[in-house]
Design a protein around this nucleic acid. Structure first.
Ligand SMILES: [Mn+2]
Ligand SMILES: [Mn+2]
Ligand SMILES: [Zn+2]
Ligand SMILES: [Zn+2]
Lengths: 138, 138
DNA sequence: TATGTTATTATAAAAACTTGCAATAAGGAA
DNA sequence: TTCCTTATTGCAAGTTTTTATAATAACATA
C-alpha cells in the first residue's frame, strides 16, 4: 500500500494523524475506478483491516472530503458516494437509466468566476452532479 | 388549506391521485420559508393528519420531487431537504458558517446550454448547491 | 526509548431511512 | 350511488447512518 504514503504529509501539515484505518480507506478510494458508497468502502476496507467499524468509515470519509483528499457526490438515489481527489470534474446522470458522463471543470470555469464575483462567495467545491436525460432516454 | 388545491390537476393529469397525506405535505412545503428535512415535514404534517407515518412522508417527498411539485437539495451535512417548486434557483452554502445565498438560474443558463450541447444530455434539474466560503469566512 | 497529550477509534445505543406486503381508499365507470 | 380497479397507505421489520463516550494509540517531546 505504498500508493497511500503520499497522503501522510498532507494530514500532518494540518495537525492530523495518519492511522491504519485512514490508510486502508484511502487505499480503497485510490484503487476504485468510480464513486463508492460508504458501505462498499466498509466491505472492501474490512478485508485489509478486520477490526474496522462502520462509524469509523463514515467519519473518515467525511474527514477526508473536508480535507481535500477525497470528494463526495450525490447519487441518483440521493445517497452520498466518494472518490479519491484527482482532476476537477463534474457529473451528468440520467434520471431514467442512470447513465453517467463526466464533464471537465474547464467547461464551467467561467461560470464559476461569474458566480464568485456576483455573490462574493469563494467556491471551494468543484464536483457537481447534474441530473437530466441522456441522449438515448430523451 | 385552499393553497394546495392548485396541485390536484397536476397530479390527475399524470394519472396520480390526490390524497390527504399529499395535501398536508404540500401544505407544509408551501408554507415553509426554507428547505425542510423529511423529519421536519413529518413533525409538522402530523399535526394536521395524526395518522401520518414516516414511510409515507419519505415516499411522498420523493414522489413530489419526481413530478415537479417539489425540489430536493443537498444540505451541508449531506442530507436531502425539500422545498415547494417555485422559481428556478440555486444555492451557495458556506462550508464554515453555513450562511446561504440564493442565485437565480438566469446566471447559469448559458452554461447549462453549453453543457447540453457538449454532452447531448438534456438537463432537467435546476437546483444546485455550491459549497464555498462566504465573504465573512474567507 | 520512555512519557504525556490529545486525536482517533470501537462500542453500544439511538435515530434516520428503506422495504415488502396486506389493507385501504381515490376516483373512473356503470 | 354503488361497484371496481389499482394507486396509495400503514404496519412491521430491516438496514443504514449518527451520536455519545470511554478506551486506545499516534506522535511530539524529552
Ligand atoms: Mn467524480
Ligand atoms: Mn432552493
Ligand atoms: Zn438514460
Ligand atoms: Zn461563512
Amino acid at each position: 500500500m505504498s500508493c497511500t504514503g503520499q497522503y501522510v504529509p498532507q494530514l500532518r501539515a494540518r495537525g492530523y494523524r495518519m492511522t491504519p484505518q485512514r490508510l486502508v480507506i484511502l487505499h480503497v478510494l485510490h484503487h476504485s475506478k468510480k464513486h463508492v458508497s460508504p458501505s462498499q468502502v466498509y466491505e472492501l476496507a474490512k478485508k485489509d483491516l478486520p477490526g474496522l467499524t462502520e462509524p469509523t468509515v463514515y467519519r473518515t470519509l467525511e474527514f477526508l472530503a473536508e480535507n481535500g483528499l477525497a470528494r463526495s457526490s450525490q447519487q441518483k438515489n440521493g445517497h452520498i458516494a466518494y472518490e479519491i481527489a484527482g482532476h476537477e470534474h463534474h457529473h451528468l446522470v440520467c434520471r431514467v437509466c442512470g447513465r453517467e458522463a463526466e464533464v471537465d471543470h474547464a467547461l464551467l470555469k467561467s461560470m464559476y468566476k461569474k458566480l464568485e464575483s456576483e455573490s462574493g462567495y469563494q467556491l471551494t467545491d468543484s464536483h457537481l452532479t447534474f441530473f437530466g436525460l441522456c441522449p438515448r432516454c430523451q
